[in-house]
């Protein structure tokens, strides 16, 4: 049950991880002024790209992911339903991460922009 749930939510969970990492890193690094803004910008972009890759990988090879998460083979009756939901959610998650990347590419990392 829990494994199936995580499988369905692969995309959104990785998206949430992405947001946590980039928002946490960017806002605290900017608050402390620890690194030059350009580097902060790249530090934001990197997790987006990596996590997007992970989602796409999981969507391309769903069966091993399912087996890894649940320890069982995909149930044949439920599989088409589970798979299509997982793929769609993954797609929306990738879209959201693309949007994060656009932000990182277009905007300076720490300015208030006001």
């Amino acid at each position: 049950m829990i494994g199936t749930l995580i499988f369905i939510l692969t995309g959104p969970i990785l998206w949430a991880a992405d947001l946590t990492i980039i928002y946490g890193a960017q806002s605290s690094l900017c608050a402390f002024g620890a690194l030059p803004p350009q580097i902060v910008g790249w530090l934001v972009l990197a997790p987006c790209v990596i996590l997007m890759g992970l989602v796409l990988l999981a969507l391309a090879k769903p069966s091993p992911v399912f087996r890894g998460l649940t320890g069982a083979s995909p149930p044949p009756e439920q599989w088409p339903f589970l798979l299509s939901i997982t793929r769609l959610l993954g797609g929306i998650s990738v879209l959201a991460m693309v949007y994060f990347s656009i932000a990182a590419l277009l905007l300076p990392a720490c300015g208030q922009l006001r």
Binding site: L95, Y99, I102, A103, L106, L107, P108, G111, L113, R114
Partner: peptide
């Protein structure tokens, strides 16, 4: 929606960037 939102988001970011000092 994906098309429209992508365009609008980019436009919004550009307006936001224009506010940079």
């Amino acid at each position: 929606p994906v098309l429209v939102l992508t365009l609008l988001l980019t436009y919004g970011f550009l307006v936001l960037r224009a506010g940079a000092v």
